[in-house]
Nucleic acid binder design. Structure first.
Lengths: 302, 302
DNA sequence: CATCCGTGCTGCAAAATTTGCATCACTAAT
DNA sequence: ATTAGTGATGCAAATTTTGCAGCACGGATG
């Protein structure tokens, strides 16, 4: 849609922080782009960007405007998609910001299921920590977010909340593999692998040890759950994960997972949400319904 | 804002039902306008308008689009207004669709009060019956609606609901002027003036007489409350009105108002609302808050 | 049935706008 | 001091938009 080209320009400049860089990625000259911005600022009567020696930054007015701009762009996508629906097609694009735990099983499974019904819908999955996920919603680089134990919740409209107890992950040969429900103090008698402190699982374990007299002394620490899991596959060590990050059927799996006793470690909460007040494109909305259904069916809501 | 000129074009064409007429009121040639529409339809891949021998009409796709278009236009106004706020001004425009009862006292009072604080804000008051008020919200010719006993409530987001018992209005010399609370059967012993059947007050009275064995036999009927009131001033006749249409202090008034017993006539409900899901411009939002405050303070909510 | 009026659409030339190049002025990092 | 990167600007070319005149069509009119 041509008429919102100026809006795309503003969006790209705001993201790249430089008119020249934006011009490159928009495949036009910086002159043209620069002048269009100047013209818009003229119309608006107020500068949209502050000029810095190394580029530009949104002004106060620009901050207000950018919200509107991104909304417009997104909303036009929704309109196009709805119009496509009229003519029989069903296209669309869904962008999801999520925690690492969703990567191995849950999201591939959900997306594959959705795409079986709607092959023309495309997906984008962005791994974001708890703070960045919300930011992705705000700047509309993501439509939906699935995050574990998020921090701030200003612009985050919760669609569903499910309880996620912490599970320990180990080789079948591990001494604890036979125990049905694990106590924290038993776990900590063995070497453990932990995610770094930015992650929700680590946070919950930290809280748990503070209540007891135990201490966390990880032999391996990483910001990659995939690495932690793989490492626990190599030596008799405990890794931790939440149910949504575990395979649905543990038959034939090379790892054993056992829940930690909730008296020791409180269950975390996985939040599924969108930007507050935003009207989602049809494809996104339908996919969200499916995820919501699955979450509700498979986990305890909180 | 130049970039949403095409959107204004679409809006005006949709309203006027003809490209040439729209072109006139937009002060451009029909050629230019026509070509822009053709270009947009090309971009969109779908016709926006159906071509009829006497003009154009929105197609199915156009119906979807026009919603988006009007939202965009309105939202940009909100952005401009918010940016103006940053630079110190406080401008804006508020358009209200309302029932006749609001005209003599309530709205003038509210608007005057608001304009004392914000003299640069302008107002527009459209008298609309119950169906047309909602339509005005939908096509965004009105920002807010204040209607008595509305019919459909699909796109109407209720901000407040207040109870409005029916009052009888008469000269101080009328025999019933001394009675504190009037019974319906007493009223109907005297000549009455009634609004036509499209109005809520009439509707409530009709309901009331159906429950009893009484009948309504108005000596005067009109679609103007002002006329009914004036006529009751001329002869000893009963008119009817709801509290919001009555002066606040009855001191020195040339008319007496007495409530009908709610056992006979159920109180009507006055609805204050906006278009569902719409983000209101700042000026509108602030005015709405003031009205809401007043309604809550002055009447029983329902 | 013939006429007429109002409609949207189109070819072509003029007008207006946008674009790109070369260049300037400026600032922070080197 | 130098350099590299930034946004702004004058001017001419390229592109887009506009307006005029006229066409084809279909319902209203008598």
């Amino acid at each position: 849609m041509k008429h919102l080209l100026p809006l795309r320009y503003i969006d790209v400049i705001a993201r790249s922080g430089s008119i020249r860089k934006a011009a490159d990625s928009l495949a036009i000259t910086s002159t043209a782009l620069n002048r269009r911005i100047l013209a818009m600022e003229e119309e608006l009567g107020v500068p949209i960007f502050e000029r810095l020696p190394r580029g530009v930054r949104l002004s106060a007015a620009g901050e207000i405007l950018i919200h509107h701009v991104r909304n417009q762009l997104s909303d036009m996508e929704r309109v196009r998609s709805q119009i496509s629906d009229l003519t029989g097609e069903r296209r669309g694009h869904v962008s999801i910001a999520c925690s690492q735990a969703l990567l191995p099983f849950f999201l591939p499974n959900q997306i594959a299921q959705y795409r079986r019904a709607h092959p023309a819908v495309t997906f984008e999955v962005l791994v974001r920590d708890r703070a960045a996920a919300e930011q992705a919603l705000v700047d509309m680089s993501a439509d939906l977010a699935l995050v574990f134990e998020p921090l701030r919740l200003m612009d985050f409209q919760i669609l569903q909340r499910v309880r996620q107890p912490v599970y320990a992950l180990m080789r079948p040969s591990h001494p604890l593999a036979q125990v049905e429900t694990l106590r924290l103090r038993d776990c900590l008698r063995y070497p453990v692998a932990l995610p770094t402190s930015q992650y929700g699982v680590r946070h919950l374990l930290e809280l748990a040890v503070q209540r007891s007299s135990l201490t966390l002394q990880p032999v391996v620490e990483s910001d990659s759950f995939e690495f932690l899991r793989s490492h626990a596959l190599e030596e008799d060590i405990l890794a931790f994960q939440i149910p949504i990050g575990l395979p649905i059927d543990t038959e034939g799996s090379d790892m054993v997972s056992r829940p930690l006793d909730i008296r020791d470690v409180p269950p975390g909460v996985l939040y599924f949400g969108q930007l507050r007040g935003r009207i989602l494109p049809v494809a996104v909305s339908r996919f969200a319904s499916q995820v919501l259904e699955t979450l509700t069916h498979r986990f305890e809501s909180d």
